[in-house]
């Protein structure tokens, strides 16, 4: 399972990459693997604002619809329009072409509360172990 060292992570498997006052977010490689083939990403509208923990996207596989939660608060600046026709990008390149949203960061301090790549790696190792029982 790949973990992008540049990103911070939430317990619900969203990643966020801060770029100045803005940030990009998506779901982790672990999450896309758990969901299997993603067939649709229901995106928010540009201009919507979400607090940390609010649902900002719904990711659909054939038999499930899973909420994605805002890792830190902010206002949507752009959505990945490529996903409309090519949702498989989330499976192929979750940290790159499979990004979900770009947003204006409301409170940069919220970033510090997210897991680092190393923390997240340990977190999913633990989940996988629990899953085996």
């Amino acid at each position: 399972m790949k973990v992008d060292p540049e990103c911070r992570y939430s317990k619900t498997h969203e990643w966020v990459r801060v770029e100045g006052d803005e940030a990009v977010a998506g779901i982790s490689d672990y999450a896309q693997h758990e969901l299997s083939d993603i067939v649709y990403v229901e995106a928010p509208e540009i201009g919507d604002s979400f607090a940390k923990g609010e649902v900002f996207c719904v990711v659909e596989s054939v038999k499930t619809a899973t909420d994605s939660y805002m890792p830190i608060g902010g206002e949507i600046l752009a959505i990945n329009e490529e996903l409309e026709d090519s949702p498989e990008l989330v499976n192929k390149d979750p940290y790159g072409d499979g990004w979900f949203i770009r947003f204006a960061v409301e409170d940069p301090e919220e970033v510090d509360k997210l897991m680092t790549a190393a923390d997240y790696e340990r977190y999913i190792e633990r989940l996988q172990k629990e899953g085996e029982h």
Binding site: Y40, E60, S61, V62, K63, T64, A65
Partner: peptide, 11 residues
């Protein structure tokens, strides 16, 4: 089918 009640239930 993800729109439908047997998957998305109350939503």
């Amino acid at each position: 089918a993800t729109r439908e009640q047997h998957i998305r239930r109350e939503r």
